[in-house]
Design a protein around this nucleic acid. Structure first.
Lengths: 198, 198
DNA sequence: CATATATTTAACCCATAGGTAAAAAAATAA
DNA sequence: TTATTTTTTTACCTATGGGTTAAATATATG
């Protein structure tokens, strides 16, 4: 069991990560200073180094935090007993809903090979690979059960992930369409690429 | 007529921009130093300031350079007398072929609101708006002439541009598929979203 | 209350990188 | 060849920001 202290520290870390993500998303990794992040939380730079080894550790943990959540949700969908069509729809919708509600966190994940150390990058790419692999599994399942056209899985996955990840670039809360509406529309259109007509 | 000097300077500027784009793409704006860019061209930092006002001027001109080319090509497609289906296919393929052959240049365009000054950003967003507007025009033309389904133009445009712009994140020359193959596949799949069955 | 431990702060160090200016070197003109 | 202009370089200034450390403060424990 995690000690009381450990829990308290973990909570504080999360607090920092969330706040840091907002700044990182707005200014980019190199454009963000540790002092800025600290100031936003009414603490000093030195205090941050009590919780995080250094700046890229902060970025790394931001990345892993959001990927963990993403993976969890994706696993739920993939392991459900929905049809491939509904699995794909849910995967798309789930991604969009999470990416829009946690926009900052998702933006932090952009351009991974620019700011991570080699070891971090290895981990990061690994976990991302797992995530995209889930899309492949759904696609293959649909193809095998003849409800999807025999598409090029890699290409289609790239199209889907591209469309989804691009949303961060243009989505804003005050836009004409809600995240819910966007996710429905995206799912509808993207499914048309793969679902067989009948 | 442009003087001999002016031409010579323009040529040198382009040379710098191309080389700068490569570094900027790899390390990001804030991660790139003027010295690095200069060194790659076997010149010194000071010399760069003879051609460019400052660092963000360099980035800005990189952006405008590639957008100019993109817009030109897009205009050719839109103003051709192809069918909407073929126009869309060509627009998609053209974008991908350019984005892959000029990968660095395109990567520089990412996250515009992070590194530009206010005035620059205004121009940048304007020219990008023009570009995406061309996609809208093609889509509307197809819908009006009943060859496309009555799709939500904004949503479909976002999906297409997302899929296309994401390519920079994963494409590499040595990959299993050539840019030509990728562009064909993308065009095929994306067209399925909008073209009516018959 | 006293002592030990955990957390925060303030003050500092230092390398880096954007930008400048004046001198040196190249190129061009006369 | 000399004078003039253009281009490049060298040396410098300065602010910034990541990271460290020792002291101060807060928190818990006996």
């Amino acid at each position: 069991m995690a000690s009381f202290r450990a829990q308290k520290i973990a909570k504080k870390k999360q607090e920092i990560l969330r706040s840091a993500a907002a700044v990182l998303a707005e200014k980019g990794y190199q454009g963000t200073t540790m002092e800025e992040i600290a100031a936003k939380l009414l603490m000093t730079k030195g205090s941050m180094y009590y919780y995080f080894k250094n700046k890229d550790d902060l970025l790394y943990q931001c990345h892993q935090m959001i990927m963990e959540i993403s993976l969890e949700r994706m696993e739920e969908v993939v392991n459900s007993n929905l049809s491939p069509v509904e699995k794909l729809r849910n995967a798309i919708k789930g991604h969009i809903l999470l990416a829009t509600s946690e926009k900052s966190m998702f933006m932090v994940m952009d351009k991974p090979n620019q700011n991570f150390t080699d070891e971090q990058l290895k981990e990061v790419l690994e976990v991302r690979k797992n995530y995209s692999h889930y899309f492949d599994r759904i696609l293959i399942e649909g193809i095998d059960s003849k409800v999807f056209n025999p598409v090029d899985v890699r290409m289609v996955r790239m199209i889907i992930l591209g469309a989804l990840n691009w949303i961060q670039q243009w989505y804003n809360q005050e836009g004409p369409q809600s995240a819910e509406e966007i996710s429905d529309a995206f799912a509808d259109y993207l499914l048309k690429m793969v679902v067989k007509e009948h």
